[in-house]
Design a binder for these strands. Sequence first.
DNA 1: GATCTACAAGTAAGCGCTTTCTTTAAATCT
DNA 2: AGATTTAAAGAAAGCGCTTACTTGTAGATC
Lengths: 341, 341
Amino acid sequence: MDIIAKVITLITIKEVSELAQVSQATVSRAINGHATVKEANKIKVFEAIEKLGYTPNTFAKALASKRSDSIGMMVGTLDGPFFGPLMHNAEGIIRDKNRHLIVTSGQESKTKEQDSIQFLQSKQVDGLIIHSDRLSDDELIKIAEKKPALIILNRYIPELSDHCICIDNELGGYLATKYLLDNGHTKVACITGQMSKVDSRERLQGYRNALTESSIPYDANLVIEGRFDHQGNHEVVRRLLDRDNEITAIFCQNDNIALAAYDVCSERQLTVGEDISIIGFDNVNYSQHIRPKLSTVNFPVKEMGIEAARAVIALIEKTDHRFTTKLLPELIIRDSVKKIN
Amino acid sequence: MDIIAKVITLITIKEVSELAQVSQATVSRAINGHATVKEANKIKVFEAIEKLGYTPNTFAKALASKRSDSIGMMVGTLDGPFFGPLMHNAEGIIRDKNRHLIVTSGQESKTKEQDSIQFLQSKQVDGLIIHSDRLSDDELIKIAEKKPALIILNRYIPELSDHCICIDNELGGYLATKYLLDNGHTKVACITGQMSKVDSRERLQGYRNALTESSIPYDANLVIEGRFDHQGNHEVVRRLLDRDNEITAIFCQNDNIALAAYDVCSERQLTVGEDISIIGFDNVNYSQHIRPKLSTVNFPVKEMGIEAARAVIALIEKTDHRFTTKLLPELIIRDSVKKIN
DNA sequence: GATCTACAAGTAAGCGCTTTCTTTAAATCT
DNA sequence: AGATTTAAAGAAAGCGCTTACTTGTAGATC
């Protein structure tokens, strides 16, 4: 083990410089593409590197330069249909820019979120992409003060307005509801996510806007609070259906809720897409696997990943690339909504 | 920015040592829990750390100590129902051990897989967990020589036998088929994954074993090659069904394939769980969301993540913790298989 | 009381890079 | 040709830690 360790770590910039017969400084400059190295020396250096199989020690490099060429990302969980594509797409961009993504998860706990960010800071990431559930606005603002290359996902903080990348939830809610209305439904219910989350409130506002536009009065009876995760939505759907049996369509504020609605409908012998119409929100991967295929509103998570990556790099490099801070959802029409008249 | 940067990086072990009135070495020892520091000094040190808000510079630490306290993991993609839980569960264990997980993805390309591993090596991860699709056994063996704390997932390499964590695919295939047989089916088809993958071959062997046990001759006509991903399985299912219209049950070698089977059955007015029985493999999250709920074989991906994390730490710490190299799949009975007689 | 141990703490030499400052060499100008 | 500017390369001082080695001190031993 000792021997192995030595063998591995043996090749340093010093060996390269000796083989190439230049100074360490020149090697360093050649590697990092500083313009002031003569072509002939560059060649000698790269030949030596090749011959020795040299790879720079990132720690030494980071320590000396105070840069890490890596970007940190904190997501809610490493698992799940939302964060997967987010990480995936961000990583693609970041790699293309010769940087690296280090991902950690907040695990739905405030302490773990703090830990994660602390960890990323300790890795001296040059930039940070954060999707936080638990941290307060103030805490995020504090982080932004320390680390100017910060992007916040899916959350709007006025003080940090140009660091936030969100989707237009209100538009999404409007689109979903309008689609139902356009298909002739007038008794349109809405199952929201937790009202403590802005996403829920914004989507609800979109629902109201669509109603208003069609001159249909808002009926509080048709709106009920569910949860974005899997817990307890079945019961909520049942309660909603018990409240009013003239409901012909439900806007579920995410696909999870729609899933529960599907179940309850089948419980009650209601055929989705026939007896009752359902539209979801998010367009997670399984929404196309359930039958009838779920019509929903696409959450542009892929674009969010890409945009976040570009934005954070722009911030790091201080280029004045303007990035989109508000992404647009769009309607995905499948088979769960029936046209009536 | 300059000022901010200075403020951030200002607090080093030196400041701490001055405030605590001990040497830097003592501070270092206190932080790292070396037993040779007097209690009184420890207290002084930690008070100083607290007061200054000191956090160690990981790069300096790694450079000086040649350890990084982090573990690298390469998965196929950051996205998807399989790798999500894998990363998630591994991270949990690793954090508990005060280490960190750095995840990269191979992106289904050999070059990217190599890049990823190179990157992780350059971060001097103390251990490596690899799920490789594209690297050859030889290449993995070479990696193992350099980095003894290596765990390979879902692949068996004899030379590295105690570094591999796999699932017993043969047992899984047997379980699935036997369940179909036990329910009275005799014309049991099998749609495999790509036969280039050992998973497919092993699962198929399990299928054959179950058949043999029930004295049912193997019929090549009932076996057809599909793909583990989403491409082209519909066509494969159609071809299978055209070959023999007495098939009453299909063992699909993963849930994706089962999904395609569901679709084709509905195309042909066959009710799954009634006219035809289907069993999948993997138990990905959406298998419980489709209707009828899919009976399948659970791939213990969660356990795999946990086991991999424990194993790699054991290897790093050279404790003689024996870990399970072969995980056991088990039957998940839901609604897609009908009992006949 | 002198000598030996053992324990704690300090000193300082790196770890492998980057980068400022300096030197050298070549090119340009008068 | 000599003075001046410019380009390229080298020397060396860190970056913030760890750790082998050294020193100091108090208790144990005779």
